[in-house]
């Protein structure tokens, strides 16, 4: 048993465990399907249970049960079972330190999705009229493959600061640009509230590629007769963009905005890697981690997690309604 759990530092042992996990899984699934297939004239329920059962079981164990646990936790004192009503929530909404965290999160969710979507849209339009389209798109799209940890390190290097003394050269690109322009170098990550915006740059840098890809495809899909008709009516340039392009791609714009907003709401890696939440840059997702796993205050952490969940509920409802509409169209 011990051998199946802990691999220590032995890479061969780790690979063996990995293969065993996959083999074990295949055996279980094969067994389920075998049982489903054996039965003659099985009832629909029986077959359906075999096919959906594993997924529903995993979802119940991995999402529903723990979610309820967290909601209960959020009314308890630290890691104890002692109920303290809404105290955790009251703390999160009244203490200045947490108000700063909430304010930062709101700022992120308002600014980052808008800018990422805007840049993506502008770039989709520009690229549509340009040569080297594939090359240019690939470069902007590339950051999507880079982890937020990797992206944060890339940008921390851009923001790098060296003291402003004779004989010392700046090694961060941004400070060097400032020096070339005759300014004095800045300790960017310590500078409030500028640092929060500089952290957002990382996310915008990543998400613009996503926005561009989706919006570019939906601009392509605008029927040409609409564009032709508008052109005959004398629309061109900005008029065309504002009156025809934007209304035609509105559904895609909504999807891009909400998707990026959801990502932004839960942004953790960037804050953790860039500043670890210091210098007034913390956000709810980072504070959740800090309280739950560093400060040993599971109750407060749970309250913050529930807060994240409550914020996305309207989006869930909206998505479900959209899906229902789409199903009806089919």
């Amino acid at each position: 048993m011990e051998w199946l759990l802990h691999a220590g530092d032995d890479p061969v042992h780790k690979f063996l465990l990995m293969l065993i996990a996959i083999a074990l899984f295949i055996v279980v699934m094969a067994l389920i399907l075998f049982i489903v297939d054996r039965r003659r004239n099985p009832s629909k329920w029986f077959v359906a249970a075999g096919f959906v059962g594993p997924a529903l079981l995993l979802l119940a164990l991995g999402l529903l049960y723990p979610a309820f646990g967290t909601i209960v936790n959020s009314f308890q004192f630290r890691t104890s079972n002692e109920f303290i009503g809404f105290d955790n929530y009251i703390r999160a909404f009244t203490e200045p330190a947490f108000l700063l965290v909430l304010g930062n999160t709101a700022l992120w969710v308002l600014v980052a999705p808008l800018l990422a979507t805007f840049f993506g849209l502008v770039y989709a339009v520009v690229v549509d009229h340009s040569r080297f389209e594939k090359f240019a798109k690939a470069l902007v799209f590339l950051p999507m493959a880079i982890s937020m940890v990797g992206a944060s390190i890339i940008w921390r290097f851009v923001y790098e600061y060296k003291p402003d003394q004779p004989g010392i050269e700046q090694t961060g690109l941004l400070n060097q640009l400032i020096v070339w322009l005759g300014g004095e170098p800045v300790q960017f990550l310590l500078e409030r509230p500028l640092n929060t915006f500089l952290l957002m740059v990382v996310l915008i840098w990543i998400q613009t590629g996503f926005s561009m890809t989706l919006l570019s495809a939906s601009i392509r899909a605008i029927p040409t007769d609409i564009v032709e008709a508008a052109r005959l009516d004398g629309l061109s340039g900005f008029g065309m963009f504002w009156r025809i392009t934007i209304p035609s791609i509105r559904p895609a714009l909504v999807v891009v905005l909400t998707t990026i907003a959801m990502t932004t709401l839960k942004v953790f890696d960037i804050v953790r890697t860039m500043t670890a939440g210091r210098y007034g840059t913390s956000v709810v997702a980072n504070e959740f981690y800090e309280q739950s796993f560093r400060q040993n205050n599971a109750g407060l952490g749970a309250a913050l997690a529930v807060l994240l969940f409550v914020i996305v509920i309207p989006v869930i409802i909206y998505n479900v309604r959209q899906m229902r509409l789409a199903e009806e169209v089919r």
């Binding site: 723990p66 967290t70 959740f288 599971a298 997690a305 994240l308 869930i316």
Partner: peptide, 13 residues
């Protein structure tokens, strides 16, 4: 609907 539930809410339990 479960798609955008933040996984943070599941971690401690």
């Amino acid at each position: 609907a479960l798609q955008i539930v933040p996984i943070q809410i599941t971690l401690i339990p």
